[in-house]
C-alpha cells in the first residue's frame, strides 16, 4: 500500500515537472482571460462555501 502511494506521489511530481511551464502563447488577451477565469472560479467557490455555511446553520 505504501509502495503504491509512494509511486503515485512520484508520478504526480513527475507530472508537475513535465507541465511546469504553460505552453500556450501568452498574449495580453490570453493572460486577461486566464485571470478572469481564476477570479470567476474564486467567486463560484466563495458562493459554494457561503451556501454550505448557510445550509449547516
Amino acid at each position: 500500500m505504501t509502495s503504491i502511494f509512494g509511486k503515485l506521489v512520484a508520478r504526480v511530481r513527475e507530472i508537475n515537472h513535465r507541465y511546469r511551464e504553460p505552453k500556450v502563447k501568452l498574449t495580453k488577451w490570453t493572460r486577461a482571460i486566464l485571470l478572469t477565469l481564476r477570479l470567476y472560479l474564486f467567486f463560484l467557490v466563495g458562493i459554494l462555501v457561503y451556501a454550505f455555511i448557510l445550509h449547516v446553520r
Binding site: R18, Y19, R20, P22, K23
Partner: peptide
C-alpha cells in the same frame, strides 16, 4: 489543458 495552461488548471 495540462500542456497548454499548466498544472493549476490541469489539476483543477
Amino acid at each position: 489543458i495540462f500542456d497548454a495552461f499548466g498544472t493549476f488548471w490541469g489539476w483543477f
